[in-house]
């Protein structure tokens, strides 16, 4: 199989302005991936499927990943003007403005995103995997990604599952409904910040985590009764 860099070059030759980036995978598996621009994803996917040298006709796996908002603390050196008292001539004190370099920690929040990951193989040429990724703009309101179901039917149920559990809205999906949870369900349970319903009432258990939740439940219930 071609390397990811070669595939990237092939894509860019075929789909102008596709904006593909290579995401390296440092683990021993060395399954590197390509990040697609959502706007061109469908064209790139169709190219990957139909190109005779690549022929990725088999979409194996579709999944979502939740990347939380990250608070990044950075140490930056800033120059500030500080007023200093210096000893002037003849014992007087003088106020003087000097430049000083101080270190400051700045925090900024890197917005998280939801990511859809696709694993492609080729049945015709028996190679793979090629990993494709797409990211949403954020985790709250701009969560649309193009659906690849028109290219690979295999994505149909799996994209529905990602929609159900992560809340990525796949535009162009023929039948985007909840698949695993019931229709009235409101949350997206696989997101990292999902809070489970509190139903650990009475738990004779050996699991510490469960026991802790049950105790929390009890103390809450007690509080509400007092």
């Amino acid at each position: 199989m071609k390397t990811v860099e070669e595939i990237k070059a092939a894509i860019e030759a075929a789909v102008p302005g596709a904006g593909v980036t290579v995401v390296l995978n440092p683990s021993p598996s060395a399954q590197h991936s390509l990040r697609l621009e959502p706007a061109h994803a469908l064209a790139v996917a169709a190219f990957l499927r139909d190109d005779p040298e690549l022929a990725f006709d088999y979409l194996s796996n579709v999944t979502g990943v939740d990347w939380l908002d990250k608070e990044i603390a950075e140490k930056v050196k800033v120059t500030r003007q500080v007023t200093k008292t210096v000893d002037g001539p003849e014992g007087t004190k003088l106020e003087q403005v000097v430049d000083e370099i101080v270190e400051e920690t700045r925090k900024h929040v890197e917005p998280g995103s939801l990511e859809a990951v696709y694993h492609l193989y080729s049945v015709a040429l028996r190679h793979g995997p090629l990993v494709l990724r797409m990211r949403t703009v954020n985790r709250t309101d701009k969560v649309e990604l193009p659906s690849l179901t028109p290219v690979w039917r295999a994505a149909e149920l799996q994209e529905r599952e990602v929609f159900d559990l992560y809340g990525i809205v796949f535009t162009g999906h023929p039948d985007l409904r909840r698949i695993l949870m019931w229709d009235e369900f409101k949350d997206y349970p696989m997101r990292k910040d999902y809070v489970e319903p509190d139903d650990y009432e009475y738990e004779p258990t050996a699991h510490d985590a469960v026991l802790k939740r049950a105790q929390e439940h009890r103390s809450r219930e007690q509080g509400s009764r007092d």
């Binding site: 995978n25 440092p26 683990s27 021993p28 598996s29 399954q31 194996s60 796996n61 999944t63 990951v117 694993h119 995997p129 990993v131």
Partner: peptide, 21 residues
């Protein structure tokens, strides 16, 4: 604790391609 990274492994299970990502 494996090093940061990702892997997709699959086998021919009796029902078909079973993969773990």
């Amino acid at each position: 604790r494996p090093k940061p990274g990702e892997a997709y492994g699959r086998i021919e299970a009796p029902k078909g391609e079973l993969g773990f990502y």
